[in-house]
Every structure is written in C-alpha cells, then in structure tokens.
Design a binder for these strands. Structure first.
Lengths: 225, 225
DNA sequence: AAAAAAATCCCGTTTTCCCCCTATTTTTTT
DNA sequence: AAAAAAATAGGGGGAAAACGGGATTTTTTT
C-alpha cells in the first residue's frame, strides 16, 4: 500500500509557525515525501508554488495576503495538475463548497491524525478526492437533502401528465407564459370560446381558480421556468 | 491505526458463491474480524442478520429475493446501529443515492483492493461514511453542481429588494398567491384604487404586464413558493 | 428646510378573466 | 360497435384586471 508513495514533493502554506513546523515534521516522517518549501503568506505562496512546482500543496484556508480559497483557485487555474489539500479548523459549509468548486483534491480538518494526512496525500496523488470523515459526512448529507428536495418536485411533473391532456398542457403553458386568451386562440387557430372552455376545464381539473395559481402549478410542473 | 479493530463481526450477503468466498477470505485475513455468516439471498439475509446481530454487513446491491437497497433499508430500520457497506459493480448514481438515503455507511466498488475493504470497515466502525474514491468523486461533483444551480437563483432574490419597496413586495406576494385586488385591499386596509395603482406601478417597474409574469417573477424572487 | 420618493386616494374605459349554458366532431378506450 | 374522453364551436354576463388620467399625504433623503 505504501509502494505508491515515491518522491512526492510538497509545499506547505500555513501562517502559524508552530503549526507549520509541526505539519512539516509530520509530513517528513512519511517515507518518500519531501517538503520543498513552506510559507505563511498567500501571495508569497503562489510565487513559491509556481517556481517549485510541487506535486501537492497543503494549504491553510485562513492565511494572510490572499485567502486560501483564492490561492487554491489560482493554483488550479495555472497548474491544474498540482493537487491542493485544504487544511481547516472547522467544517464550515461555505468553505467546503467553495474549495471543492475551485477544484481542490482534499479537505482536511486540523484535528486529523498523521495517518489521515498520509492517506489524503496518497489519495490525491491517485487522482482521488480526499475529505476528512466529518467533511465527507456533511457533503453526503447535503447531497441527500438536495436530491430529495429535487425528487419532490418531480412528483408534480408526473402528475401533470396524468391529469392533463396534451392540449391542456399546451394551453396551460401558454397561459403561464402570460399570453391572453385572444392571443392563444389566434396562435392555436381555435376560437376564443374554445380557449375559454379549455381554461375553465383546466381550472376545474386542477381545482385552481385563478391565473396566479395556474402559473405556480405550471412552474412546479416544469411547463415553464 | 489497526488497534481500533477488535473483534468486529461481519455478515456477507452476495449471491455469487465464488465472489462471496473470495470476499470472505479477504475479510478473514484482516486481523480482528470474524465472519459470522454468509448468504446469497436478500430475504434470508434479513433473518441471518437479525439473529446474529453483526457489527457490519457487507451487502451486494444486486441479489435475488430482495434487492440490496431494500435489505439495507430494513436493516437500518430495525437495527440502526448495524453498519451496512454496499458492494456494487458500477458507480450507478441512482443506486448510490438510494443507498445513502436509506442510511448505509459505506459504498464500495467491487474492483477495490483489500486495503480499501479494510479501510471501509474501520471507517464505518468509527461512525464515518466510507465511499470508494470514484463514488466519492461523483457525489462531490454532484454536490457542487447542485449548489451552483441554487446560487444562480439567488441573484433574482437580491434584485427584488433593490427595485421594489417593502409595500410593493408585500402586494406582489399577495397577487402571486392568487388573491384578487379586492381581497388584498381589504386585507391591507387600503382602498381598491390604491391596490390598482400599486399593481400598475409594480408592473411598470418590472416591465411585466400580466399576472402570469408577476407570478413567475415572484417565484424567482422567492416571495412565494 | 427642501426635495425626492413612497404610499395613499379617486374615476372612467377597455380588455380580459371566469363562470354559466348547450352542442358537434374527432379521438381514444372498452 | 358502443361508450367515453377530448377537442372543437358558440353565446351571455358579471367580476376583475389593466390602463389612462390627476391628486394628496407621509416618509425618507439630501
């Protein structure tokens, strides 16, 4: 398992000296990993990284000069192959999301042990994404919540195909788009009276008795945006 | 790191005998883990699991009798403390989501190595969620995609607070909820004429000249659902 | 204190919405 | 082939919306 670690070069970006040196000591205790450089300033970090071109950057999220996410973003823009692992004190949802969005490969909580650090580095070198378990859990929970919210909406979608005829859906859509009865009847080449009858029937079926309600239904049913 | 593995009991559910025995051999090669039972049928699995009460269930997602997700769901309902790790051939999005939803603690691809199996078991015993890296990556990607879609909508939200006065927003909301001018004027204790004037003014400001458009705008602005 | 913006008020006209009725033709289902 | 559902067609009438105009009071900003 340790065989896939071979001469991995790392740059550490972390402003608190003691923490930085601690991390450095930990990292260097792992066989096959070399720390190329270390810095505590965001802007300086970019210079150092672009010059030394490490495999992996361990990047504190809260650093002076340029914040960690901004640094990560620029690293990935200039050198997409450089793997970035964020180091953070807390499982702040916004930070997690922003980090993942700019393309970091890992997100480690600072109370992780040395084993996790090693695992994270190995993971990202394998092109994987490594998240500390609490982070991972949060992402998964959020993932589930979002999909479930989405699925609820789908039920209305299905429903509209069951209760309304194609013609009715067509007309409902036009109503929801803001067209008047007259406009719609002209567009569909039917008389105004039929349009009126259609609208009335749609309202009966859906038990909605005003345009506002029809529009809200049409949006939920994804007939309009 | 290996010290937190102590007498972990496992049940393996997998219908292909060779695969099952292979997994069994792998698992038993890990120190401190004991395989209590094994079966290849979903319904039988529930009996076995409820009788033997293992710490962890390794559960193939495609099994006869009852499908894996259904089995997982019942296990978590009856015995929430039993950890379930799904075994799957592919990174099927629907399976992943459904599994996570019913509360499984791990999702492993079958081409994972023994190290990953060990890691997954240790992870779930620590109350963490373990996903095979490709699975993890997919979940993260999906997570980002969903949040980004959500953020787009927020822009309209802000806008409504800039262009409409509080009173106008209040009225727009009531209109979008389907109330008539008369109803709203009564509710707000203002004359019908003012309501009319308000509506007219809102329409002018937004450059929207029908109820349908107002409702769509109100929904985008999150004034109504 | 002056100016600007928001909220209030009134009226008359045209258009659209919404509901009521009956009825025929076409399509789908049984 | 018969029955049911959908789409077509028409008319009448009351309520509400939409638009035009003009005006006052209150609040906020400058």
């Amino acid at each position: 398992m340790a065989k896939d670690i071979k001469n991995i070069s790392i740059v550490i970006v972390e402003d608190h000296t003691i923490v930085r040196q601690g991390i450095k000591a930990l990292v260097e205790s792992i066989e096959g990993i070399k720390v190329l450089a270390e810095t505590g300033d965001g802007r300086e970090a970019l210079d150092v990284i672009f010059k030394s071109k490490p495999h992996v950057v361990l990047l504190d999220i809260a650093i002076p000069g340029l914040n960690g996410i901004e640094v990560a973003s620029r690293i990935k823009k200039e050198h997409p192959h450089i793997k970035v692992i964020m180091l953070s004190m807390h499982a702040n949802e916004e930070y997690i999301f922003q980090s993942l969005r700019v393309g970091v490969s890992g997100y480690l909580l600072k109370d992780s042990g040395i084993e996790e650090l090693e695992m994270a580095i190995k993971s990202v070198m394998r092109n994987e994404i490594y998240l500390s378990p609490p982070i991972s859990k949060q992402v998964v929970m959020d993932y589930i919540k979002r999909i479930e919210a989405m699925e609820k909406e789908k039920k209305v979608d299905k429903n509209v195909f069951e209760v309304l005829t194609p013609r009715q859906r067509e007309i409902l859509q036009l109503i929801a788009e803001g067209h008047t009865t007259k406009e719609i009847s002209k567009k569909l080449n039917i008389s105004v009276n039929i349009m009126d009858a259609h609208r009335t029937q749609i309202m009966e079926i859906l038990d909605i008795h005003n345009v506002a309600g029809l529009v809200r239904y049409a949006i939920k049913a994804k007939l309009v945006d």
